[in-house]
Design a protein around this nucleic acid. Sequence first.
DNA 1: ATATGGCATCTAACCGCTTACATCCGGGCG
DNA 2: CGCCCGGATGTAAGCGGTTAGATGCCATAT
Lengths: 376, 376
Amino acid sequence: MVTLYDVARLAGVSTATVSRVIHGQDRVRDSTRARVQQVIEKLGYVPDGAAQSLSRRRKNVIGLVGVERQSPKEQNDIESVTLLFYDQVLRGVEARLRENDWSLLITYLREAGDPDVPRLLRLSGQVDGLLIGEGIVPSRVIASLSKRLPVVVVAGSPGERAADVVAADNRAGSAALVTHLIADHGKRRLYHVDGPPSAPDAMERRTALSELVAATPGCQLVGSSQGRFTVRSGEEAGVALLATCGAVLPDAVVCANDEMAIGVLRAFARAGVRVPEHVAVVGFDDMFPASLYDPPLTTVQQPMRLLGERACIRLLDRIADPGLPPEVELLPTELVLRSSCGCPPGTLTRRQVPPLRTGRAPLAPARSGQPAAVAD
Amino acid sequence: MVTLYDVARLAGVSTATVSRVIHGQDRVRDSTRARVQQVIEKLGYVPDGAAQSLSRRRKNVIGLVGVERQSPKEQNDIESVTLLFYDQVLRGVEARLRENDWSLLITYLREAGDPDVPRLLRLSGQVDGLLIGEGIVPSRVIASLSKRLPVVVVAGSPGERAADVVAADNRAGSAALVTHLIADHGKRRLYHVDGPPSAPDAMERRTALSELVAATPGCQLVGSSQGRFTVRSGEEAGVALLATCGAVLPDAVVCANDEMAIGVLRAFARAGVRVPEHVAVVGFDDMFPASLYDPPLTTVQQPMRLLGERACIRLLDRIADPGLPPEVELLPTELVLRSSCGCPPGTLTRRQVPPLRTGRAPLAPARSGQPAAVAD
DNA sequence: ATATGGCATCTAACCGCTTACATCCGGGCG
DNA sequence: CGCCCGGATGTAAGCGGTTAGATGCCATAT
């Protein structure tokens, strides 16, 4: 292994000078710089990251902790919000880091049971800050980690208090979507296909739905079932719905994500139920196949990549200046109206949904209609 | 920051003892161990990764270099082999690393132009080994990196000579698929929707197709176009095909991946061309929506996650014992027969496709039908 | 000629941990 | 009773960089 000392010796200078040349800063005579450069090239010298980190007292590395819902078995019954979701977030983060010459260490936690705390601790010794996805890591653990190093929770519950949170405004998005069904299409009898209880975003979406149903005269929830965010669980929900409702279909089925909506559509197709003629179906996330499906799915787009970028920026800020009080940043979603809701086939309308609230999490019930506080 | 010294001082022992306690090895008197443990807990001590790496002369970190084909703009016209592909590979790698307490550093390279060599170099100073995806990094660069540290190429061309390669046997998979079209469905007039020239897997698939067409009397390639692995480019190819072929459709359209196949299906659907009645369409990869589409897509499944696992294992082997000569490992693919090829609707047949060859890359033309050498 | 100041460069301490080697200690044995 | 031995623990030298402060040099000011 070639070290700084080798370079220094061969170039006839001190290690300090070589270091200065490498970092391009400072005043070094041009002739010296050139000589050192030459030796570096010749030896193929690359600085050792560990030594740099130790010496600088900063690693320039952040960690991303994701969730793996997918069981290794079913590679292709992808339970893929998670999948697509982290992939997009990851790219957003990475794009940001690249600009600053930071690096990204990544780890997935299995969904099941207790988070592997020892592993999180070890990770915390390898990075300058942590991006933690979603709701698998209990608040208590997040709080204890944030005492050690800056932590930003991505897509977590806006209720998190110990750390910064960057999330899509699921509540506003869901509210906009349901409002569209109620106000624009006159739907009243709604059926809800919920996500897993552990998912904070599903919770937010559910809350918005309930609030709107409660606030709208004549509107009611005619049933609901709980899915696992997978296509299969959506199919099961669809079957259950048909069995339960009998001849009287609901006006619309509101699903906590696109995969489950697709599952419902498949169940309906097999049963001869036509969408949107007999019943409307809507999803959430606007994942890849949503636009390809027949009928094209009306849904809400989450800015996943942006989520990653904003979370990353926030984390780097916190690393640069710890001690600022934690904040919540909600990112705008977008209503994507295709035709599964009853909008005319072949059309596509996109409506920006401004965040309902942001800043230090007030945790008050969302007041829908309140003018948006634009994030950042 | 709490250091080893703090712990040692408070526990009234030397740093060596604390270190021994942390690593659980060695003989330390039980009473001492307990006392140290207690202080560790109390202080919330976590070892510094950089210092450990430096001292051990090993970082226990590997790097994964992926490709980002997706332009940041079109979050949802996901050009997503890449997307799904790396995500799956990533999980495979991560699952393996987790078992060994190693960590994963991840970076994406943009598709365009010259790879960012300085960045790769810097990365090489932060890890013990490198997993490099696909064909964007020129052989020359890979060769120079492998001189510095162990490198395994994932899903790269089996022709790579400077480093280990772990890839799916695209050629065998493609051959099996095309053979199915020719032998089982009697297709003769084939149209090819190719992938980008930079993608080695597309190249392998194309080669198998050409070889089979050439080897089958009466079989011919009636046309081809080049796509970018995206749905949109598939649609364009479909439109071009219809324009070119006029009334005389080919028997089958062989697409270099599923996204483009879906694009072709969409173009056909709009033009009133029915699949598989008028023409068969097949893809490659078996990505998520392939099974959901109408008609369900016949394709070849790549073992993406396994790819990651095998590559990771290989890399760790090489790190443990450098100097072994590079090897090529081809992983079996699986033929997934749904109905877009003409197989009866509602059926699903899976056929394991054994790798044609493996071991030290012979680079001889694949002899199809040769008994498979089972990898590892 | 001498003092002065600023630039280029060097010296060496330090970052936090690992570990080879040294040391200490108590008991069994001759 | 002194020696030897082995297990428990301590000492201190690195690991490969960064950087504060020291040093040397030379041109300019006095």
